[in-house]
């Protein structure tokens, strides 16, 4: 891919994409089996009800995995290079969240794009907040 193509993909600084996603307890259970992380805060609603979260919450990496998938829908072929993220609040089962992406800057010489990445919960709080660096090189 040539260096101008980042712009040819129609991306420009300040562009925002939003994808909605609803998390179910089944997602948490499936992800627990896959990752080996069956911490009760993710998979045991009775246990989780007694914690400050009051409900099971998504694995942080499940949030990020869904976010990655939503990113690829908007920028097909993006290759992930680096991520920084924080998980300010817990995202609970049954919530419909908005995965939000904002184009922060281009490195046209290297064909890389930096984006702000966020998961906004139903109550407006951030479930995930961070940045990612992706490559637009074709594989």
């Amino acid at each position: 891919m040539k260096r101008e193509d980042a712009k040819n993909k129609g991306l420009k600084t300040g562009d925002v994409f939003i994808e909605k996603h609803t998390f179910s307890q089944q997602d948490f259970d499936d992800f627990a089996r896959l990752s080996g992380d069956d911490n009760p805060i993710h998979v045991d609603p009775d246990y989780a009800a007694k914690t400050p979260f009051r409900s099971t919450v998504a694995h942080g990496m499940l949030l990020y995995s869904v976010l990655c998938s939503a990113l690829l829908k908007n920028i097909p072929g993006a290759i992930q290079l680096e991520h920084q993220m924080m998980f300010p609040t817990g995202t609970t089962a049954g919530e419909t969240v908005s995965c939000r992406f904002e184009v922060l800057e281009f490195d046209n010489a290297a064909n890389k794009v930096r984006l702000k990445i966020q998961i906004l919960r139903q109550n407006g709080e951030l479930g995930l907040d961070g940045e990612t660096l992706i490559s637009l090189e074709d594989v």
Binding site: S35, G36, H59, M61, H83, F87
Partner: peptide, 24 residues
């Protein structure tokens, strides 16, 4: 990466670990 969060949540430190940030 999910395997890494699996280690944090089940082995070190395990139960009740709260994930605050991750850089990769």
């Amino acid at each position: 990466v999910s395997l890494l969060s699996g280690v944090l949540g089940t082995a070190l430190p395990g139960k009740n670990t709260i994930y605050l940030e991750q850089n990769l």
